[in-house]
Amino acid sequence: MNSPAITLRAMRPDEYEDYARRRDQEYVQSLTEMMSTEAAEEKARQDRARFLPQGLATEHQHLLVAENASGEVVGHAWVGLAEPPTGPADTAWLHDIEVARAHRRSGYGRAILAAVEAVAREEGASRLGLNVFGDNAPAISLYRASGYEVMAQQLAKRL
């Protein structure tokens, strides 16, 4: 499938609050498979404070909005160019990528991912790392089709 044309731009302050709230809610929902809601909410707060202490102004963090050729917002991505702190210096980290619900299954995920990879390369990264929850089959399929390989794996069983 050919990817549609997109343009990445910096997220505006008026978009950031909605993005951060929505991302935190989705993160908490995913984490509740592994911990209580209260613990998940606290982890979401701590992670945002750790990785985005100055919000949009946080150094080495790019919060990006993807627009199609008509200027319509079709998704977003967050790439850290200094993460993870314990990883190799040449590795950027994809903290988040999402295609707007109305535009899913249309090639925008692949287009956004490719554009983020280009941003990371331009900033000097030679690798792009990411985490994905094990039950996110569409994302796993996208990453595999885009050449990503499993570097580590965690397993769990509910008792």
Rank of each mutant, 00 (worst) to 15 (best):
M11K: 03
H103G: 01
L113E: 06
E98M: 02
D135Y: 13
G80Y: 04
A66S: 06
E83T: 03
A115V: 09
E42N: 10
E98R: 02
L155Y: 12
N2Q: 13
E67L: 14
A152M: 13
W78L: 02
A44I: 05
A139E: 09
V99D: 01
G124R: 00
R12H: 10
V79S: 06
Y16S: 01
G147L: 12
Q153P: 00
E42H: 08
R48K: 06
V79H: 02
V116E: 11
V28L: 09
L128M: 00
P84C: 06
Q29Y: 08
I140R: 06
I140D: 07
G87L: 10
R104Y: 05
A40W: 11
V74N: 02
P138L: 05
A39F: 05
V116P: 03
N2T: 13
R158H: 14
E149G: 12
G124W: 08
Y16A: 05
E33N: 10
R101S: 01
S3H: 15
V65P: 09
R105D: 06
G147S: 10
A118M: 10
H103A: 02
M151K: 05
A92F: 15
W78Q: 01
G55F: 11
V73G: 00
S36V: 08
G124I: 04
E72L: 07
A115S: 14
D96Y: 08
G75S: 05
E98P: 01
V79W: 02
D18R: 09
L113P: 01
R23Q: 04
N131P: 00
V74H: 02
A92I: 13
V150C: 01
S3Q: 15
G80V: 07
E26A: 11
L63Y: 14
M11N: 09
L128Q: 01
G124F: 05
E17H: 10
R22T: 14
G129S: 03
L56I: 14
R144L: 11
